[in-house]
């Protein structure tokens, strides 16, 4: 579903991401973790086609992003940490706009359940400025899910959500993965990743330190210890612990 090979992104002489390779298959949820400035958001933005990679290739559902970006983007959705909405479109008009862009013919039948799922159906005629931060986040996610993407990238998806919203969001991500989507999500909330992710990739200064299933990565840094949390693994991998 998602194949990343030797991805490198440079800003001038600075490498934000360097020689990164990994694969996310159908039904898998990959957690992208790393300290601030590790290159997580840059990696997600490269994979979503927002910024071009300096070198390397990204394939979305087998389509090379650089060669055929339009076809590749039909299958993906990107959810930034800060919901970017058009302030002058209501909730309903956002969905109408996105439906036309993606050509979702029967969008009303898809949009209704989505609005219900994210509990914004009763605010369908409100503008983003009339919604709370969490509601805006939910609207951005509903827009992204409208065309039933097979590949999803979440950048800090739980920012601004209340506890119930967090629970629903986690369930939603897991449900989409069970339905066959490939998901990559970046977050500093390691307990969330432990609950949701099947795989994890640790980045530091743009370079991959480790990837694999949670058990595989834990085993690599455990030094024989049992029951290590992802937080323990993260701290050891990134050199942030007192060990």
């Amino acid at each position: 579903m998602i194949e990343v090979e030797a991805l490198t992104k440079r800003y001038g002489g600075v490498a934000a991401v360097q020689d990164l390779s990994f694969t996310v298959r159908r039904g898998e949820v990959l957690g992208l973790v790393g300290p601030n400035g590790a290159g997580k958001t840059t990696t997600l933005r490269c994979m979503a086609g927002i910024i071009p990679a300096t070198t390397g290739t990204v394939r979305i559902t087998g389509i090379e992003l650089a060669a055929d970006p339009v076809a590749a983007k039909r299958n993906l959705a990107f959810f930034p940490d800060e919901p970017r909405l058009f302030e002058y479109l209501t909730v309903r008009q956002h969905l109408n706009f996105v439906a036309r862009i993606y050509g979702v013919a029967n969008y009303e039948t898809v949009a209704g359940p989505l609005l219900e799922e994210f509990e914004i159906a009763d605010r369908a005629d409100r503008l983003p400025s009339e919604l709370s931060r969490g509601m805006r986040q939910k609207l951005a996610i509903a827009c992204g899910l409208l065309h039933a993407p097979q590949v999803m990238f979440f950048d800090e998806p739980l920012t601004g959500l209340d506890p119930l919203g967090i629970r629903r969001m986690k369930n939603s991500i897991v449900k989409r993965a069970r339905d066959g989507a490939a998901v990559v999500l970046s977050s500093h909330l390691l307990h969330l990743l432990e609950e949701v992710c099947t795989h994890v990739l640790i980045l530091k200064q743009g370079t991959k330190l480790a990837d694999g299933t949670l058990a595989e990565v834990a085993a690599r840094f455990s030094n024989g210890e049992a029951r290590m949390t992802l937080e323990d693994v993260f701290l050891r991998a990134t050199g942030g612990s007192e060990i």
């Binding site: 909405l85 058009f86 302030e87 002058y88 209501t90 008009q93 109408n96 706009f97 439906a99 036309r100 050509g103 979702v104 013919a105 029967n106 969008y107 005629d125 409100r126 503008l127 400025s129 009339e130």
Partner: peptide, 22 residues
């Protein structure tokens, strides 16, 4: 994000009906 300022924006009807395909 806003060309007229949040306080001045009002939700309103669309200028024309936007079909989902086209």
């Amino acid at each position: 994000e806003s060309r007229r300022g949040i306080g001045m924006i009002k939700g309103r009807g669309a200028p024309f009906r936007l079909l989902a395909t086209g």
